[in-house]
Design a protein around this nucleic acid. Structure first.
Lengths: 227, 227, 227, 227
DNA sequence: GATGAATGAGCCTTCATTCAT
DNA sequence: TATGAATGAAGGCTCATTCAT
């Protein structure tokens, strides 16, 4: 930012103020995300969000007409389609489906799980029933594309004979569940008493990937009675 | 009016009242559990809890000194260890560890997942950060015994050569994650738009059990490079 | 009220509280009427209304869900059909129409003008544009019946040859205008500086009645070119 | 960009701006009058006034130190005595006093009632109790001169034997009331539901003038009992 | 001068909690 | 014990006013 300022020398006398104005919504959304994730929707006070963003109460309402709209904006802001990007990556993927799944979970952790974006998932799951309209939105914008992607990966494994012909729908849940679990732990119980959850996320993800891949492959290799 | 009641029958005229009186706290905790699970702590109004329990606002505060204490009582009440019972069942279990795991998950679903007790898990995960002492309590009373049990089961499988020598800590997460995921779905997003989550819990549990058991066994049967 | 208390001796232990509960809405409406008339809708604070009624802020909202609903209730409360009563009186009236008009204005002053009900008229006229739905209501419930009544009286005078065949519509305005004027003075400018408006309402009403009756009759007696 | 303006033409480049600058206060007062009349003092937002005048919020406060001062300025600005002018007209009037009254009301309608100046009357009556000093001012600057003028006209009629020897004080009210009534209707209830008040102001004024003149004259021509 | 982003006092409204009955 | 009317602290939101640009 200092560099961009240098490049503008003398022009646009309102630059600093303008820049702030444009930055405000983002700063507020940032502050709001943290607080909503940390304390929940109801326990987060508007004034607190404003304070954390370094502005006064009134300024918040200059950019978001209500606390509810702020909440919605937080959710929308942090979900913007990362799926297009992923779709491409996976369409171009050449390795085995087992590798794909490992890559997929690893990347998910890096881009979502380890970032503040994971807070959105926690938010949605905690508050869904108070914001049904948002839940629908989230379902369409995040969950559907995400599960579609996973479904296609699993199907690829089945089609190529790498995996046993499992029920793909439930296979998707098997992939998603450990990720959701990790997020929920990170943002709720794990955040209260980290010492009780000495969880190395990286290793957690790898282990889950191994286990799932093994589970999926094993059935392809050694199909047995249902057990 | 009390006199007319007296004439009613030979039984103690206060019996019904007494019965109700003793049942009050339980009825209130029941009502509170439902509402807290459905709407979250903050969005649940004391009066609504009282109304659902069929008493007046004042009566609620006769039994629980504050909303916060009510919440804590709800959680504590429903956490009561079923682990002693389970410990015995599993100590006496004679079959393979794979069967144990399948049995374990099935039983968990029947006794926790499918019942209102699952609401407690949802509550804890959603509200943990606002009730850290409860979270600690929950960690000690529920999570630790539960994971200990699972750990012992997994260890049994490893010791008996049924499973590959996996990291048991993470193996526990692999077992827990799908259960937690199922609960969260059931109580949040899944409750908003059931049609978007056409999930047959029974089958979900079986599928997860299969997949996990396969994953765990596969490694014992066919240890390979990394998997 | 003391007498009614005496008559209830010993019965209904909640009598006092009950009675208060039933009296509350009325007390609040009373307080609100005064304040709305005195300060206008916006400048009247909810807490002030409550305080004047001798209760706390919260109690007001126990009886009226919002300030706006309180305002509407104030208007409605003070308009309850006095017209049925008047209709009868005037249907049974036997004297000359001139006497009718004098009686009408005198009675209006006693029952409306001199009472707090006149404040409603001031309120409606001052706030009509901010409460269009109320304005419609007032138009239908008060203005229409009132003007209908006056119209019939004037028509009677014309039909019986007591009055010149004036345009009855405008004749109604001629009767109403001095009353509205009196109310507005009483509640606005006149309330600020009574010494500047040493107005004897009784005499004002009589004088207006005389003048109007003369004006109406004169034309019947001595019809001239239009001037 | 200023340079391109400079090149435009030979005239003072600041002329337009200067002109606007000087016009500002007037434009603001105009906008404010409309809004205050329409919505009342409290419900009129400063920003809306500025917007209607085509300037920014800040500019409004450049010319008027506060909303209250703006309101006072609006009232004062529009009260400017037209009475000197009228005094002259009436001093030179040669016809009958009846004609004078008709002329007076007609002129009042043309110069006040039909113009935005009538809004001031509506404002004063609606807001008087919140601005007592303005009310006093209005009383002195408008009401006193106005009623003095009317009083002199009525007195002339009585002195010349045209009118009965009525109580001139109350006679003045008889003249004023229909005008005030017309204004209040126009700006409040009548503005909400014009279809309910199909009032032809021109004709209304003429009719009132007729009725009043008849009422006043009748008593001179045909003095009877009390009527 | 003009702008409009920022401020924060103030008000409406909610709801956990109290307490007279 | 049970009730529910009453309370008042707390928090969302508005808008007159300020001031850096």
């Amino acid at each position: 930012m200092p560099s961009s300022k240098l490049a503008e020398r003398g022009e646009d006398p309102q630059a600093k103020r303008e820049r702030r104005k444009e930055a405000r919504p983002g700063e507020l959304l940032d502050a709001a995300l943290d607080l909503f994730v940390e304390k929940g929707y109801a326990a987060t006070r508007s004034e607190e969000v404003a304070a954390r963003a370094g502005v006064s109460k009134g300024t918040l309402f200059l950019y978001f007409p209500s606390k509810e709209e702020l909440f919605k904006a937080v959710v929308r802001e942090n979900m913007s389609g990362r799926f297009a990007e992923w779709e491409e990556e996976f369409a171009a993927f050449e390795g085995s489906t087992a590798e794909m799944i490992r890559y997929c979970l690893r990347v998910w952790w890096e881009r979502i799980g380890a970032t503040r974006a994971s807070g959105i998932t926690k938010l949605m799951i905690s508050e869904a029933r108070n914001f049904p309209e948002l839940a629908t939105f989230y379902q369409q914008e995040v969950i559907r594309p995400g599960t579609d992607l996973m479904r296609r990966i699993l199907q690829r494994g089945v089609d190529r004979g790498e995996f046993a012909p499992i029920d793909v729908e439930y296979g998707v849940y098997a992939l998603v569940a450990p990720m959701i679990f990790l997020i929920m732990m990170k943002h709720s119980l794990g955040a209260c008493a980290p010492q009780d959850y000495p969880l190395d996320a990286q290793r957690y993800v790898e282990t889950m990937a191994d286990l799932l891949v093994n589970g999926l492959c094993a059935r392809a290799e050694a199909p047995r009675g249902r057990a």
